[in-house]
Design a protein around this nucleic acid. Structure first.
Length: 299
DNA sequence: AGCCAGGCTGACG
DNA sequence: CGTCAGCATGGC
């Protein structure tokens, strides 16, 4: 079946095969710091890369081959979920053309080409990015793994023990000491408070249809969520392609690429981000990848 | 060994 | 409104 004028997919033997996916790069996308639960695993014949993950409570193995992307298991009716998760219905060719055409951004493209912004589950994104504050990617992933082992559902898959991301109720009923024990540090009470708000019925999905500014204001009411974390949640789980998280890497990259290494005023930075356009958030991911790959701004 | 990391909170101007 | 110390923890 055709999709978006290019991509094509087929469900066969419990496996979803997606082909004609342009320059999609699973390796970069799963390993670029947007999501923390993708675990690289051994490749088999013909596979470029392979990962385990648990999505909405179900373990999967996703691989990229010469032909495209394959996800197993996938039941009939689940195709759309995975296509949406990997954002394969979007025309990234057009976005990468935008980057190539912008002299400030073009340098990011060769290394970052093929990145896709995944559509994660909002609660998982909320908790994950609260944990991400003033932290490094490796340690963030470790804390999240231990959180899942602490109170997520235990699953067996291909001989591996895996854990689902826990429910809001499960996280909400943890004690602060349990979270500090797994390394969450001073974020422990923020995690519990925010999970309680969700467990008590706050629906993050409603932020999907709100304006970027209104949705951000809503997220800023959560403990442990500031401007940067709010933008991560909006970009990585709620479809706001113009949410532009500014962390230390992006700040350094923007300074160099847009301002000749002269730190701009806040209003100037805001203007620069707006000038990137309605896909600025997605493009941010290319900038982030490039900045880290070349250790931009560091010796 | 000491700086750093997908920053935020609360206090103070 | 903007600025800023303090913050848990382990990666490098």
């Amino acid at each position: 079946m055709r999709y978006n004028g290019g991509m094509e997919y087929e469900l066969k033997n419990d496996t979803l095969y997606i082909t004609d996916i342009a320059d999609f790069d699973l390796d970069k996308s799963a390993d670029c710091g947007q999501a923390f639960r993708w675990k690289r695993c051994e490749t088999r014949a013909g596979e470029r890369c392979a990962f385990y993950c648990v999505l909405r409570g179900k373990p999967i193995r996703a691989v990229q081959t010469e032909a495209g992307l394959a996800v197993r298991p996938c039941a009939k009716g689940e195709e759309a979920f995975y296509i949406r998760y990997f954002d394969l219905g979007r025309d990234y060719r057009a976005i990468e053309e935008l980057i190539a055409a912008d002299p400030r951004l073009a340098v990011c493209l060769p290394g970052a080409r093929g990145i896709r912004v995944f559509n994660q589950e909002p609660f998982e994104a909320l908790i994950s990015f609260i944990i991400s504050a003033n932290n490094n990617i490796k340690r963030i992933a470790g804390i999240i793994d231990r959180l899942c082992a602490l109170c997520g559902e235990k699953l067996e898959f291909e001989g591996q023990t895996m854990f689902a991301f826990p429910s809001p109720d499960a996280v909400a009923s943890l004690k602060t000491e349990q979270l500090t024990a797994i390394g969450a540090g001073y974020r422990a009470p923020y995690i519990i408070e925010s999970a309680k708000k969700i467990a008590e019925g706050y629906d993050l999905e409603k932020l999907r249809d709100m304006s970027l500014d209104d949705a951000r204001k809503e997220l800023l009411k959560f403990k442990g969520v500031g401007p940067k974390v709010a933008d991560c949640i909006l970009l990585f789980s709620l479809g706001h392609t113009d949410a532009f998280p500014i962390d230390v890497w992006i700040d350094r990259a923007m300074n160099e690429l847009f301002f000749g290494s002269v730190p701009p005023k806040k209003a100037e930075m805001k203007e620069a981000v707006l000038s990137i356009g309605k896909y600025s958030g997605i493009i941010q991911q290319y900038i982030f990848f490039h900045a880290r790959a070349v250790q931009l701004g560091k010796k």
